[in-house]
Amino acid sequence: MLQFKLVLLGDSSVGKSSIVHRFVKDSFDEYRESTIGAAFLSQTIKLSEEYDEQVLKFEIWDTAGQERYKSLAPMYYRNANAALVVYDVTEPDSLPKAKLWVDELKEKVNDDKLIICLVGNKLDLVSERESTSLVDEADAREFAQENNLLFHQVSAKTGENVIKVFQDIGERLYLQNKDKIQESKKPNNNNISLQRPSTNDSQSCCS
């Protein structure tokens, strides 16, 4: 089976854990405890016909957004194939923080193969809020475009668009690794794990 590593980044309480739980367990918990350190989950998806109905497995590291745990993040994004950078559409401060994460990824990982998806969460709250207290969608979209990021707006609460994010990432990963996948389809070779080649030595990132 194809296996990819995915990491979630973003300010605390923007809904990273909620998104993961919606994706992995299709459930939502209003009173989720905030994450300690980094949590590990996994989920399998099947791509559409266009993508040979390929089955992918995501190994997901859900990091804690609090400052205290910031030093852990490099360890997890360094080996990741994809990163979800999440912000809260009802929290204008959370977008700049997301942008900082993107900058850090570009600087520290500096690998075109790393797929980054900018995700605005809590879409369900948009209708009940004044538009002035919301994140400017155009701003986020523009930033994503400039930096060549995928962009989605979701609601972990209602589940809207959540699967779509992972499908989208899965498709990109599929395209990216198409050659190797074809290779693996040949007999006697049906279980490979694709690891993004790490440009840096494993130790050098955190120093």
Binding site: I36, F40, R68, Y69, S71, L72
Partner: peptide, 17 residues
Amino acid sequence: REELMVLNEQRYLVENM
């Protein structure tokens, strides 16, 4: 020191996982 503490905590978590 703080980073070390966080790492040790994480180590414990991952060990359990």
